[in-house]
Simulated scan of single mutants.
Amino acid sequence: MIITLLSDFGYQDNYAAVTKGILLQQMPHANIIDLSHDVEPYHLLECSYLLKSGYTNFPDYTVHLSLFNILHENPAKVLLARKNNQFIISADNGLLPLTFDDTLDAIYKYDAFAKNYTEWMQLAARLIKDLEQSQFDLKNLEAYQPATNGAQFSAIESENAIECQVIHIDYYGNVIVNITNDKFEQIRQGRNFQIHIVRDVLNKIGTDYADVTEPGKAVCLFNSAGFLEIAVNQGSASKLLGLKLHKDKMIYYQHIKIEFL
C-alpha cells in the first residue's frame, strides 16, 4: 500500500518521523511517501493546493494522509474521502470541501474521536489498515457532511477581470495563484488580456521558463498542475516582486489582477 503524507510540520522536529513510526507499527510493509511537510502553518489554501495538484499522480488505491491542523477541534474526528479510487484522510478542518467542492464520491467519519495528535494518528493508522484488509470496502463507515470554514479556493471572477490570490510559493520562489488554464480560457473567450503583477504588466503567457532570456524579467505560464505560475529568470519572483502567500485581510496590491480587453 502507498501512503502519502502532507503536513505543516516542517523538518526541524520529529513529528513526520513519529507519524511514519505509528503507521509502520500497523503496516510494516507500507510504502510511505512525503508529499510535503512545508505547508505554511495553518495556511489552508496552500495545503489544499498541494493536495489538489499532487494526488492525481499516484496509482489507484493510494491513501493520502493530511496531517494539517488535526486538532482544529477537540476531540478531533478522522474523515475519509474517496475520489476516483484515491483515498484522502483528514481532520474535519475544512480541507476536504475546500479542495474538492462537491466532486467527492463520498465522505465518511471513523467511529472514534481523538483528544491529541498521537491518538488521532493511531486511529488513522487503524483505519488505513482496515481499508487494506477489507479491500477498500467502505460499507461499514458512517457517511458524514464535513465542516466548512468559509475559505474560498477559487479566484474572484467578473465579466472582464479575475482577481487571483497567491496560494503557494515553491523552493525557487516561483509564485502559484489560484486560477487554472481551463478557467482562464473559459472566462477569456479569446480576448486579449493584461496581467497586473505589482509594478509589472504582462500581456502574454509563456510555455516554459525559457520564454524570457533576460535575468530579472518575469514570465507567466501554466504549470504542470494547470495553475498559473509567475516566475523570474534567474531569480525569485516572490522576493523580487514582493509577493507573499494570501491571507485574510491582506491589502489589495497583493492580488494578481487579470483584465480582459
Rank of each mutant, 00 (worst) to 15 (best):
L131Q: 09
G94Q: 05
F153P: 04
L141T: 01
F193E: 03
Y110M: 04
A147S: 14
N181H: 12
Q165L: 11
K83S: 12
N149W: 13
A161W: 09
N84K: 10
Y110E: 08
I187F: 06
A91Q: 04
N181P: 14
N84R: 12
V177M: 00
G150K: 00
L80T: 08
A81C: 08
S134D: 12
N178G: 11
Q189M: 06
P97I: 06
L79S: 06
A81Q: 06
Y172C: 08
Q152G: 10
I167F: 01
A76W: 05
E159F: 11
A161V: 10
A81N: 06
I187W: 06
R126F: 09
N160E: 13
A125R: 00
K109E: 15
D92T: 07
L131C: 09
L138E: 09
K77R: 04
I187H: 09
I156V: 15
Y108L: 06
E119G: 09
Q135M: 13
Q194T: 15
Q189H: 09
I187E: 01
N174T: 10
D182Q: 10
R188H: 10
L96S: 02
S90R: 07
A91P: 07
Y108E: 07
T180N: 04
A114P: 03
H168K: 01
A125M: 01
G190N: 02
F153S: 00
F87P: 04
Q122S: 11
Y172T: 09
E119F: 08
S158F: 02
C164T: 07
S154K: 13
Y108N: 07
L127G: 03
